[in-house]
């Protein structure tokens, strides 16, 4: 099937890309890997008169880490490179694992993590861990640059917080400090090329056996990835015994609004939120070893 007609533009700088977006208006779409752009355009569910390919803009493909700011990932950094990065695996294996959960090897060799969140699918695999980590997206705007906390980035199904002319340049993920642990686990029927029925990310801060802070984020069970404050409340200030984890799982069920679709019923998703919240916290405490490859 032939793609609808569009103009293809390749700005060389962020300024140029941003100006094009302002000038061309709503008909212009930014693309990097294009894996969430080209198939839906072919299906006519996404319309674009102009595709602004930012792959020619230098300086946006990087993975860096420093102890203060944490992990920095560029807008053009491919999911495969994040999944296999020694730096990401060492400093935040849950992020590497979340990248690996996306689609297939071929998609991850083209698609980016920034694209995955900008696409703002309710079931996006990298959203929950970035929210749970309190990550920020760095944005280039026509007038000024700004940072958006991940917790405020998703606005609805396929809707994000970007204003006209704004382009995400990267993601900053705070470091895992002393006693801090994170995990993301996904429940899907197939290991590859499948969307999450439920995805849960957990970040916990421990003082010995006691949890002093926690952030849980649920994917695929609301119009955007959502925090689970009721579950967090159960965890904070307690020793993380199996009973407390079970209680947090039950509490998380109140924090989501899943729908029934071809993958699972709302009831099933609700119940899996209970199970996977428990498992995600347990996984964070266990850590990652061989299961990263």
């Amino acid at each position: 099937m032939v793609l609808p007609k569009f103009d293809y533009l390749t700005p060389a700088t962020l300024e140029e890309a941003s100006n094009l977006l302002v000038e061309l208006g709503a008909g212009a779409k930014v693309m990097a890997g294009g894996t969430d752009i080209i198939p839906p355009m072919r299906d006519k569910v996404l319309k674009a008169d102009y595709l602004i390919d930012i792959k020619g803009i230098p300086g946006l493909d990087y993975i860096e880490y420093d102890e203060k700011t944490g992990l920095k990932i560029g807008a053009l950094t491919k999911l495969y490179d994040i999944q296999t990065s020694e730096i990401v695996r060492k400093y935040n294996p849950a992020v590497a694992k979340a990248a690996k959960y996306v689609a297939s090897t071929q998609i991850r060799h083209k698609g980016t993590m920034v694209g995955n969140i900008c696409n703002a699918s309710p079931s996006c695999d990298t959203g929950p861990i970035l929210v749970a980590m309190n990550a920020k997206v760095t944005v280039h705007g026509p007038e000024k640059d700004r940072e958006i906390p991940m917790g405020e980035f998703f606005k609805g199904v396929k809707r994000n917080a970007l204003q006209p002319g704004e382009i995400v340049t990267g993601i900053v993920i705070p470091p895992l400090g002393e006693g801090e642990h994170a995990a993301y686990i996904k429940h899907a029927v197939r290991k590859a090329m499948d969307l999450a029925i439920v995805g849960v990310a957990a970040w916990v801060k421990m003082d010995g056996n006691v949890c002093v802070d926690a952030r849980i984020c649920l994917g695929a069970v609301a119009i955007t990835p959502v925090r689970a404050p009721s579950a967090e409340k159960v965890l904070i200030g307690k020793e993380l015994t199996p009973e407390v984890l079970a209680e947090a799982g039950v509490a998380a069920m109140a924090d989501c609004k899943p729908i029934s679709d071809v993958r699972a019923s709302a009831e099933y998703r609700h119940d899996m939120v209970r199970v996977f919240t428990k498992r995600a916290v347990r996984k964070a405490l266990e850590g990652y070893k061989e299961d990263l490859t």
Binding site: I38, H109, K110
Partner: peptide, 17 residues
Amino acid sequence: LDGRPVNSCATLAVECE
């Protein structure tokens, strides 16, 4: 594409410049 496996159906020809 540059040694990476990609789906050519989800790649524009012009991306290969």
